[in-house]
Design a binder for these strands. Structure first.
Lengths: 109, 109
DNA sequence: TCTATTCATCGTAATATTGCAATGTATCAA
DNA sequence: TTGATACATTGCAATATTACGATGAATAGA
């Protein structure tokens, strides 16, 4: 099948899964970390920074943009990418709520 | 290819990707949320709780156990599952470091 | 022992993901 | 206009993921 049965889960669960899925590839993690490190729009460079071919990077950027985690502003022949800070904060809230669930101290098994 | 080139990324990036990947399916998110809600070992039940067939749930549980996020203790004919709290805390630290990167206030584009 | 129950594993079909060569599109500079 | 540059898109091959029926292994109770 290869197709997740999203209809039997609630919106929050599907949202967490969607965000997580995009972080589920080291190249996308590396791209985001680089954008954070620069903390500015970066034009080009990503292909040299990460060791993957240009179409591959372009595809990963597309997925990040689709989820709204990065912005891409066209500037002449190049495109400047940066973190979409508002959306990143929103995503963070969703993920933190999931990761930070209350755990009682005592172990059960 | 379908194969991520993990060798060109560092350990931290690959670790974040691995954890994220396991959260990248709503069924596994739902399983974890249920285990947190119960906050105890739960024997069986997960198949009824989540709306997927038994082999499918078993497969998802296997992946969660493989990453160390849950424990499975055999108890007679059934198996009791619960969150592996120590490992969850470790995972949380890794993910928080990634999600909580410092963002300057000013926008760049 | 026999049977029911619970869960894991195997095998398989359908679909998704990853990566890149080839190509397309848009802009700038000469 | 022409060529160069930067990036997106297309098409395809290799592999991964998801889901489940069928089956296997282990245990409890009759």
């Amino acid at each position: 099948m290869g197709l997740a049965k999203t209809d039997i889960f609630n919106d929050q669960q599907n949202e967490i899964a969607l965000f997580s899925k995009v972080f589920g590839h080291p190249a996308r993690v590396a791209i985001l970390q680089h954008l954070f490190k620069i903390d500015a729009c970066i034009c080009g460079d990503l292909v040299n920074e990460i060791g993957l071919a240009q179409p591959t990077i372009s595809q990963h950027l597309k997925e990040l943009k689709l989820l709204g985690l990065i912005k891409g502003n066209i500037e002449g022949t190049s495109v400047c990418y940066c973190i979409h800070k508002e959306n990143w904060t929103i995503m963070k809230k969703v993920m933190l709520k999931f990761l930070d669930q209350d755990i009682s101290k005592e172990n059960c098994c």
